[in-house]
């Protein structure tokens, strides 16, 4: 694997290797040694055309813990805002010698173009492109689910996971549907029909218009952020109507299985897709998702540009 553009780039074994590596890295990070020399001398560029503080700092922390040099290139205040093309930006980074480019872009497919046109020699990692995919978010979600429900081992066979909300515009949902099903889980997509894409029936997930029909049988419920401007585009009549029908509230939390967990990729709209009771309940693993994100992104960087497999990890770290 050269780039990580889509979950489709990963076989099931590739995905499990990333998760297993992340488990090891998480364990090592918990001990006193929080920094590894693995990527010393390598340059990782965070190329962010869209604001996303949490994803950017997560990748930055991951790269720094592996001792990589990190360059943050934000579209704001850069030449991009003066109309520089994606191509010219890429060529600039290439000239600087980036070993990996982590790209967040508002246009679906922008990372694929960077990789396919080979404006850049380094690995391209998709950190969220338009309404297409966000593969490392799905990996960290799978990691979190596996940690809580499968003791960090194997795949997700037998689990039932609901993804609730604005599936139409969600790159998180697209990557998660692909990955969770690849790992053997059964996925429910719960949304008003306006927020499901035409063609969603080909995704293999079960479609439900009612959260209450499925919530009691799910092992994990993943709430998606709903942008308030969707209301103006006629996707739903009002925030209150959305929250009543699709929001995760105390009553719905109470209906969940005892072992089930609540997830959200952040940032949350408290009171819209999730109430404070939902966000702060004992079932919520939302804060933990953030910590797991660093481990998973370390694993991705390690496997992609460290030129190694998970079997090398213990040996390599043992040398130091």
């Amino acid at each position: 694997m050269r780039d990580l553009l889509s979950i489709n780039d990963l076989s099931k074994d590739d995905a499990l290797e990333i998760l297993d590596t992340a488990v090891q890295l998480a364990a090592l990070s918990d001990s006193s040694n929080r920094k590894f020399p693995t990527l010393r001398g390598r340059t990782v560029v965070n190329l962010f055309f869209e604001d996303s503080t949490r994803t950017r700092i997560s990748f930055e922390a991951a790269a720094k813990r592996l001792s990589a040099d990190v360059i943050n290139f934000s579209a704001k205040g850069s030449s991009v805002s003066k109309g520089e093309s994606l191509k010219d930006t890429a060529l600039t980074l290439q000239a600087m010698g980036a070993d990996a480019v982590i790209i967040r872009h508002g246009a679906s497919g922008a990372p694929a173009q960077l990789a396919r046109k080979r404006w850049i020699d380094g690995a391209v990692i998709n950190a969220g492109d338009g309404t297409h995919e966000h593969p490392t978010q799905a990996l960290l979600d799978a990691f979190t689910i596996r940690r809580h429900l499968m003791q960090d081992k194997g795949d997700l066979a037998g689990l039932k996971i609901a993804i609730v909300g604005d599936v139409l515009h969600s790159r998180v949902a697209r990557s998660n549907v692909l990955l969770l099903q690849k790992l053997g889980a059964k996925v429910f997509l719960v949304a008003p029909p306006t927020l499901l894409p035409v063609g969603v029936e080909h995704w293999g997930a079960q479609i439900n218009f009612s959260i209450d029909e499925v919530i009691s049988e799910c092992d994990a419920v993943m709430m998606l952020r709903v942008q308030k401007e969707r209301m103006e585009d006629l996707f739903f009549p009002s925030e209150r109507e959305y929250a009543r029908n699709f929001g995760l509230n105390a009553a719905r939390i109470a209906a969940m299985k005892g072992s089930a967990i609540v997830m959200h990729p952040g940032p949350m709209n408290r009171g819209l897709e999730i109430t404070a009771e939902g966000a702060d309940s004992k079932k919520s693993v939302i804060v933990e998702q953030v910590a797991n994100g660093v481990s998973v992104r370390m694993a991705v960087l390690y496997l992609l540009i460290g030129g190694a497999t998970s079997r090398d990890l213990t040996a390599q770290i043992g040398e130091h």
């Binding site: 679906s108 309404t131 063609g199």
Partner: peptide, 8 residues
């Protein structure tokens, strides 16, 4: 378009 996340 659903798969690619491009507006239909």
């Amino acid at each position: 378009s659903a798969r690619l996340g491009l507006k239909g």
